[in-house]
Simulated assay, not measured.
Amino acid sequence: MPTLRMTTPRLLALRTLLAEPERERYGLDLALEAGLEPGTVYPILVAFENAGWLVSREEDADPHTTGRPRRRYYRLTPTGVSAARRAQAASEQRRRPAGAREGVAW
């Protein structure tokens, strides 16, 4: 399984996906919720899927009936949930200054 470099956009996408790990989301929905541009989120989704963190499916809808292209829905895998939580924890650890403690230091 490839190791993914965690960028801010990837962490934002993971945070959004982890909010409801069982929920299927389509790319534009995820982009809006994460505060990302669609052109940014789709390569992230492909990378996560290639790493085994996501599974996807194309909706079974007629574009002529819906008036829009078919959507591809993405959902975190159990491996993806674990990896996303580890990535978020590592990111939070890096942001904390060395020697910082929880709570107020008076």
Rank of each mutant, 00 (worst) to 15 (best):
P2D: 12
T3L: 08
R5W: 04
R5H: 11
M6H: 12
T7Y: 08
T8W: 11
P9N: 08
P9S: 09
P9I: 08
L12M: 11
A13S: 10
A13R: 03
A13F: 04
L14P: 02
R15K: 15
T16W: 07
L17G: 03
L18F: 09
L18E: 10
E20S: 14
P21V: 02
P21H: 03
E24T: 08
E24F: 10
R25H: 14
Y26E: 15
G27N: 06
L28F: 13
D29I: 01
D29M: 07
A31Q: 12
L32T: 15
L32A: 15
E33P: 02
A34M: 11
G35I: 08
L36M: 13
L36G: 05
E37F: 11
P38K: 12
G39Y: 13
Y42D: 11
Y42Q: 14
I44A: 00
L45D: 03
L45E: 04
V46P: 00
A47G: 03
A47P: 01
A47E: 13
A47R: 11
F48E: 06
E49S: 12
N50V: 04
W53K: 00
L54M: 07
L54I: 06
S56R: 14
R57P: 00
R57H: 10
E58C: 02
D60V: 03
P63Y: 07
H64K: 10
H64Y: 06
T65M: 08
R68Q: 14
P69Q: 11
P69T: 11
P69W: 09
R70A: 07
R70V: 08
R71Y: 13
R71G: 03
R72G: 01
R72H: 12
Y73D: 10
Y74M: 04
Y74G: 03
R75I: 03
L76W: 04
L76C: 07
T77L: 06
P78H: 12
T79P: 02
T79W: 07
T79L: 14
G80I: 02
G80V: 01
G80E: 01
G80W: 01
S82M: 10
S82K: 14
S82E: 15
A83G: 04
A83P: 00
A84V: 02
A84T: 00
R85S: 07
R85Y: 04
R86P: 00
R86M: 06
R86D: 13
A87K: 00
A87G: 01
Q88H: 10
Q88A: 05
S91C: 05
S91Q: 10
S91G: 05
S91R: 08
Q93M: 11
R94N: 09
R95W: 12
A98K: 13
A98M: 08
G99I: 10
A100V: 06
A100T: 07
A100Y: 12
A100W: 14
A100S: 14
A100C: 07
E102F: 13
G103Q: 05
G103A: 10
V104P: 00
A105N: 10
W106I: 06
